[in-house]
């Protein structure tokens, strides 16, 4: 698969990941952040977003 598709899929996955984990935290506070910092996930989501946008820019 082309790199830009991989980056895009990682961005989608990171978005779903953030949504699911934040929803879990909202329903049961501490269930995620007791083991894993969501800040890292946010960082991964940002990086994935930047890379996927960079991939789209290349096409243009």
């Amino acid at each position: 698969m082309k790199k830009k598709i991989i980056f895009l899929e990682f961005f989608y996955a990171a978005t779903v990941n953030l949504t699911v984990f934040y929803a879990l935290e909202g329903f049961w506070p501490g269930v995620v952040i007791s083991r894993f910092s969501l800040n890292w996930l946010l960082l991964i989501w940002l990086i994935a977003g930047i890379l996927s946008m960079a991939g789209q820019q290349e096409k243009l």
Binding site: A13, N17, V20, L24, G30, V31, F36
Partner: peptide, 12 residues
């Protein structure tokens, strides 16, 4: 992602 989420819930 969903497997990890289930693991978090079971661990909790």
């Amino acid at each position: 992602i969903f497997l990890v989420a289930i693991w978090f819930v079971l661990a909790g």
